[in-house]
Amino acid sequence: MEQSFSSILTYSIQAIAILLIIFNILRRNEKKVGWGSLSPLLALLGMAVSFEFGNYIFGDQLLSFLGLPAWSNADNTGFHYTIFLSSIFFIPSLIIGYKNPKAFGAKIGKWVSSIYLFMIIIPALFFIIS
C-alpha cells in the first residue's frame, strides 16, 4: 500500500513538472499552432502506451480490450506487441513533425518520436536475429 502511494506521488510530481514546463514554453511561444503541433501530442500518446505505471501498462490493457495478446508467448514472455501499438503513434508523429517544421511543437515531437522509434527498432532487430 505504501509503495503504491509512493508511485502515485512520483507520477503526480512528474506530471506537474511536465505541465509547468509546457505552460512556460507556451507562454514564450512565437510559433503558430498548426498541424505540426499534433506531433508532440502523438508522441505523448506513444509514450503513454509504452510506459509501465506500477503493474499497469496502458498498451497491454488496450490490446487486451481489442482481444489481442500483449506478448508472443502465453506466459508474458517473448516479443512484446505493445511496441507496435506505440509505433502507430510515433510514426505519424515523426512524419507530421517533418512535414510541418514551422508549427509549434513540431520539432520536439519529431525528436521524441525519432528517439523512441530508434529505441524500438534496435531491440526488435536483435529479437529477430536471435
Rank of each mutant, 00 (worst) to 15 (best):
M1C: 06
M1F: 00
E2N: 10
S7Y: 13
L9S: 13
L9D: 02
T10C: 05
T10A: 09
Y11T: 01
Y11A: 00
I13L: 11
Q14W: 08
Q14H: 03
A15T: 08
I16C: 03
I16M: 06
I16L: 13
I16G: 00
L19R: 05
L19W: 00
L20S: 09
I22M: 08
I22S: 07
F23Y: 07
N24Q: 11
L26T: 08
R27F: 14
R27W: 14
R27A: 14
R28P: 02
N29M: 09
E30C: 08
E30W: 00
E30I: 14
K31M: 05
K32R: 14
V33F: 11
V33Y: 08
W35V: 14
S37G: 02
L38P: 01
L38G: 02
P40I: 03
L41R: 04
L41M: 09
L41Y: 05
L41I: 10
L42H: 00
L42F: 09
A43V: 02
L44R: 01
L45Q: 10
M47T: 13
A48Y: 07
V49K: 05
V49L: 15
V49M: 14
S50D: 06
F51P: 01
F51L: 13
F51Q: 14
E52C: 01
E52I: 00
E52G: 09
F53I: 13
G54Y: 13
G54F: 13
N55G: 13
N55K: 12
Y56C: 08
F58N: 03
F58P: 01
F58R: 01
F58V: 14
F58D: 03
G59Q: 06
G59D: 08
G59H: 10
D60A: 05
D60N: 12
Q61T: 08
Q61I: 00
S64W: 05
F65T: 06
L66Q: 00
L66C: 04
L66F: 11
L66G: 00
P69D: 07
A70S: 14
A70R: 04
A70W: 02
W71L: 00
S72H: 01
S72F: 00
N73S: 06
N73I: 08
T77P: 02
T82P: 07
F84N: 06
L85I: 03
L85A: 08
S86K: 04
F90M: 07
F90G: 04
P92A: 01
S93E: 05
L94D: 06
I95A: 02
I95Y: 10
I96T: 02
I96D: 03
I96A: 03
G97D: 05
Y98A: 09
Y98E: 12
K99A: 07
K99Q: 10
K99P: 03
N100A: 04
N100Y: 09
P101Y: 13
F104R: 01
F104A: 03
G105D: 02
K107H: 13
W111G: 11
W111D: 06
V112K: 01
V112T: 14
S113Q: 09
S114N: 11
S114I: 07
Y116F: 15
Y116V: 12
Y116M: 15
L117D: 10
M119H: 12
I120V: 15
I120W: 09
I122C: 13
P123A: 11
L125Q: 09
F126E: 10
F126P: 11
F126D: 12
F126M: 14
S130C: 09
S130A: 08
